[in-house]
């Protein structure tokens, strides 16, 4: 499994313009192979930007992202990306959507990965809709298809940008369980963006808490629960402590006080 090394990454949008904006400031982070890392923080703190730098969708203004010793390039075979909206292409069937990364390589690659795509659809419970168009699927099913697409080329690293944020609470919990199971089964490195604290605690082996203006990592928290996990772990003393530490880091001490009083 590949490590991801984020080395003093700064991202300034509109660097040559009259109003440059520092979205990420001097971020360094070493992500070990097989880790489930969550990037957690308030809106606008640069979570997506950092993830996009890892995916090669943005280029850091200064600093480097190294994946398994090499620089991350767009379409780097080792990276799968799951979008916030499922971002399925409406003109392709669910199966063809899952196979899209293979289609980009070449038409013959598609045939090579067909069995693999079916297998993944089976794993996420979508075999019965493989030939339907995405529009006929529920939001949860679409997001599952998006995850299957992220995994189809068997990447070492799966990047997810708030993949569950548009889902209802029940579907969300269901998919959280599935995601943990996929992580255990595949042993891949998962990097997961969220602004839900309990979601981050339930899923991750480590949480990078971020702050805005400028975007930076304020705290790194190890979450040492054994996998497979159950939801009651969120009621444990340890989880409550982590929750409090994260809130303190994000809102500052005063706010935390007010929230515990409530």
């Amino acid at each position: 499994m590949k490590d991801v090394l984020i080395d003093r990454v700064t991202k300034i949008f509109g660097a040559d313009s009259s109003a440059p904006f520092t979205a990420l400031h001097d971020i360094s982070l070493d992500i070990k192979g097989g880790e489930f890392l969550s990037l957690l923080g308030p809106s606008g703190c640069g979570k997506s930007t950092l993830l996009r730098c890892i995916a090669g969708l943005e280029t850091p203004t200064t600093g480097n992202v190294l994946v398994g010793g090499g620089g991350a390039r767009p379409g780097f075979d080792n990276i799968g990306f799951v979008f916030q909206g499922s971002n399925l292409l409406p003109w392709l069937s669910v199966l063809d959507n899952v196979l899209y990364p293979a289609r980009v390589k070449s038409r013959s690659t598609v045939e090579q990965y067909r069995d693999r795509a079916h297998e993944l659809l089976e794993q996420v419970g979508l075999s019965h809709v493989a030939n339907q168009r995405p529009e006929s699927l529920s939001g949860g099913m679409q997001q599952r298809a998006g995850i299957a697409r992220g995994l189809v080329m068997d990447p070492d690293i799966l990047l997810m940008d708030e993949p569950f944020s548009a889902l209802d609470a029940m579907t969300r919990e269901e998919l959280q369980f599935e995601l943990v199971r996929l992580h255990q089964e595949t042993g891949k490195t998962f990097i997961f963006v969220t602004h839900a604290i309990s979601e981050a605690i339930f899923l991750s082996s480590r949480i990078a808490v971020m702050e805005a203006f400028p975007g930076r990592i304020s705290q790194l928290i190890d979450v040492e629960f054994e996998y497979p996990r159950t939801l009651d772990l969120l009621n444990s003393k340890q989880a409550i402590d982590i929750d409090a530490a994260i809130r303190a880091s994000i809102y500052g001490e005063a706010k935390t006080q007010a929230q515990t009083d409530r």
Partner: peptide, 11 residues
């Protein structure tokens, strides 16, 4: 988002 999908898969 569609263009990003293309980019992220190396299109």
């Amino acid at each position: 988002d569609y263009l990003d999908l293309g980019k992220s898969t190396g299109a």
